[in-house]
Each structure stands twice: as structure tokens, then as C-alpha cells.
């Protein structure tokens, strides 16, 4: 598979894996390894001032191996998203991790659906681009919103397959393929990542077969009964989907087409 380019980032793996919701940091570390991913997402949160376990996420991520993609999850306004992005960048600069250059932008509308707020997302994209960020913007599968976010300067648009953590897979393949078509019109290399909603391996394959450049997921691995095995499954599913997309699938036909020739058949053929 060709490496994926997003602005100045060249990525060997097209799978982006989140670090949330694992039973332990040890399982997370093993799952990340098994997924073969190069990019891992993290969230920025207030330091716990009283109840410190002394164990930090950063102690379980090999910063020389992974590129950290900080998110703005939990932000409900463009202003807060920009604040959080700046904090994440500062932290990654201190770790000397290349992830300091980019951000996974989330501006959410409400806590129940976690669906993105398109207006806030566009506004935050503009501000972050001005501040020198490579913006990867989480959005719904609405093709017109996706186009507006690209126009606002996002280096990658990341439509959701279905709501965050819902495990419902790609609910509207038509919309995802329209996003891909509109975003890549005259700009085939523009990276589009399906973000959110993946429940199992086939969901990843579906997204990749549609022509997505990558998939970002978290819960599908973290909450699987065996997260490490599921991480391996996701890795293979992504590769299968990408290879199938590059190979060019056959068109769907209404009727059967025999793989073995009728010519020379011994015996009776109905209708002949």
C-alpha cells in the first residue's frame, strides 16, 4: 500500500487508533502494537490535582514510534476547541513529538449524540489554520458540510460512519461516497478519513472499499472482549478494504455469470 500523505505527514499505516476506554494502559499498549497503527489519538484534560495514581498515559506510548494526534473532544464551541488545540500543541512540543503540528478537531453539538456542530467546526478550522495547525476535522457524513470544511482550510475531512462509539458501522455509504467524490474532485490526493462508528472489522473494510484514505477508531477495539485480537482484525480489515478498492471491484449484476464455460458441457442444458 502507498503511504498516506496528510499535509507534511507521511504515514505508513492508514489506521488511526484512539487511546480511550481500555481496561488498562498495558492492554492499550498491546492493542496499539497489534493494530500496526502509526498515529494514536489522545485527549487533553485537566490534571487530577488530588487523586493522582502516578501513572500517566504518556508513560505507555512510545513517543519515538507513534505520532500523537491530539483531539479537541468534549469541546462545544470553536473558542474552546482552539484553546484545547493550543494546549495539546504545547504539550506535544515539550515531548518533541511531530504531532505538535496537527489536531483532530471536534466541535460537538450536544452530549447525547456527540454529533458535530458544522458552524463551530468551520469557524474553528479557520482559526486553527491561521495559527499554523494542520487540521483534521471530524464531521458528519453530510457532503456539503464536508466541502465547506475543506474550503475553510482543513488538511483532511473526517466524516463519521455513524455516531461516536455507537458501533453501527457505515450507516450511509452513499453519503460517504458522495463526500469522497466531492472532496476529491480535481484533487484526488485529498485525504478523507472515516472517523467514528466502527463496530467490527467489516465496517473498516466497507469504509476503505468506498475509497476512504484511512479509518480512525477507538471503541471498536477498546471495548471488544479481546481488544488485542480485535486490533489485529482491524489491521487486516483495513488492508483488505484498501487492496480491494485499489483493485477495482466488479460491477454488481442482476443475474449469474458462470465461471465455468457452458461450451463442451456433457449433458442437458435447460432452454437449449
Amino acid at each position: 500500500m502507498k503511504p498516506l500523505r496528510i499535509a507534511s505527514f507521511e504515514l505508513s499505516s492508514r489506521l488511526f487508533v484512539g487511546t480511550g476506554k481500555y481496561q488498562s494502559y498495558e492492554i492499550m499498549r498491546e492493542a496499539l502494537e497489534a493494530s500496526g497503527c502509526q498515529v494514536v489519538t489522545v485527549a487533553v484534560r485537566r490534571e487530577r490535582l488530588f487523586d493522582q495514581s502516578g501513572r500517566s498515559l504518556l508513560d505507555f506510548i512510545d513517543l519515538s514510534k507513534y505520532i500523537i494526534l491530539p483531539n479537541t473532544a468534549g469541546c462545544f464551541s470553536a473558542e474552546d476547541a482552539v484553546r484545547v488545540a493550543l494546549l495539546g500543541r504545547d504539550l506535544l512540543e515539550k515531548q518533541k513529538n511531530p504531532g505538535a503540528g496537527w489536531v483532530k478537531l471536534e466541535v460537538l453539538g450536544d452530549k447525547k449524540t456527540l454529533l458535530p456542530d458544522p458552524v463551530g467546526t468551520i469557524e474553528a478550522t479557520k482559526q486553527l489554520v491561521k495559527q499554523g495547525f494542520t487540521v483534521l476535522a471530524y464531521t458528519s457524513d453530510d457532503p456539503r458540510s464536508a466541502v465547506r470544511i475543506k474550503e475553510a482550510g482543513a488538511a483532511s475531512v473526517m466524516p463519521a460512519g455513524s455516531p461516536i462509539g455507537s458501533g453501527q458501522g457505515v450507516l450511509n455509504p452513499l453519503n460517504i461516497s458522495l463526500c469522497l467524490e466531492l472532496l476529491k474532485e480535481g484533487d484526488a490526493a485529498y485525504p478523507v478519513i472515516v472517523d467514528a462508528g466502527v463496530g467490527t472489522a467489516s465496517d473498516v473494510t466497507v469504509a476503505m472499499e468506498l475509497g476512504a484514505d484511512g479509518v480512525l477508531l477507538n471503541t471498536g477495539i477498546a471495548h471488544a472482549k479481546d481488544p488485542v485480537k480485535m486490533a489485529r482484525a482491524m489491521r487486516h480489515a483495513l488492508e483488505a478494504g484498501r487492496l480491494a478498492y485499489e483493485s477495482g471491484r466488479i460491477p454488481k449484476k442482476r443475474y449469474a455469470t458462470a465461471s465455468s464455460p457452458f461450451e463442451g458441457v456433457v449433458g442437458y442444458i435447460p432452454g437449449e
Binding site: 489519538t41 489522545v42 487533553v44 484534560r45 498515559l57 473532544a73
Partner: peptide, 29 residues
């Protein structure tokens, strides 16, 4: 006070009512 404070300015003396946020990374997707 809602503005990023760079490490080189951590020696700045705070004032009453200042709003300070100290953050780190946690697991997230």
C-alpha cells in the same frame, strides 16, 4: 486566564482571582 502560558513564563507571579488550568493527556479517540 484562558490564554496558553508558555513554559518560560511559569515563573510569573500569580494574582488573586487568576484562572489557571493545568492539563495533560488522557486516553481519547
Amino acid at each position: 486566564n484562558r490564554r496558553l502560558l508558555r513554559t518560560e513564563n511559569y515563573n510569573q507571579v500569580l494574582r488573586p482571582g487568576d484562572q489557571l488550568e493545568i492539563v495533560t493527556f488522557v486516553g481519547g479517540g
